[in-house]
Simulated scan of single mutants.
Amino acid sequence: MLNRTLLTGLLALSFAAGNALAHGDAPHSAMKPANGGQVQATGSYQLELVVRKDSADAKDNPVALYVFDHDGNKVASSGLSGSATLLSAKEKVVVPLKADGDNRLAGSGRYASDPAMKAIVAVTVGDKTEHARFTPLQPGDGH
């Protein structure tokens, strides 16, 4: 009897842990991009990263990050800060992001629109920081 109870408890814990990890490790959000970018989920947010798509040369280009809750509702950007680290074969650029309107963080940095670009985004509120990874210029990777 004790072994059956212990086994049932362990199975319940493993399913709960698996569900928690599945949400946090999901590569994409179910939300469709509202601003032409790519959407990724974090523990607290759905983030849409928008970068310049047509800049052949590295120059000062905008970066925008839109913040939503998991129901797709806008999250006010006041009180939020962040950064976007843009990585390509030729360069690494860190773009500080500041509140810029309703649910948007924005900044600019010197980068080219490299189709192989990867981005690591950090969003901070208070002492809590969440991260998401993006491939913002990959075809078919709109969400």
Results as ranks from 00 to 15, higher is better:
76 A>L: 11
99 A>N: 07
98 K>R: 14
95 V>K: 04
71 D>G: 12
51 V>T: 09
126 G>E: 07
71 D>V: 05
5 T>A: 12
74 K>C: 00
14 S>G: 11
17 A>V: 15
105 L>N: 02
99 A>K: 05
8 T>M: 15
65 L>M: 06
44 S>I: 04
12 A>V: 14
42 T>V: 04
72 G>K: 04
6 L>C: 09
109 G>W: 04
58 A>L: 06
118 K>T: 09
93 V>E: 12
93 V>M: 11
91 E>T: 15
120 I>M: 12
101 G>H: 03
53 K>L: 06
17 A>T: 13
49 L>M: 10
80 L>R: 04
132 A>T: 09
105 L>C: 06
131 H>Q: 15
82 G>N: 07
61 N>P: 07
67 V>P: 00
109 G>F: 08
140 G>M: 02
43 G>Q: 08
76 A>V: 12
42 T>K: 04
93 V>G: 08
42 T>C: 03
115 P>V: 01
127 D>C: 01
102 D>C: 05
53 K>Q: 14
101 G>W: 02
97 L>F: 08
8 T>R: 15
60 D>E: 12
38 Q>S: 10
111 Y>R: 04
17 A>R: 07
133 R>C: 11
86 L>G: 03
7 L>K: 10
7 L>M: 11
118 K>R: 14
86 L>S: 04
39 V>T: 09
73 N>L: 11
40 Q>C: 03
123 V>P: 05
130 E>R: 13
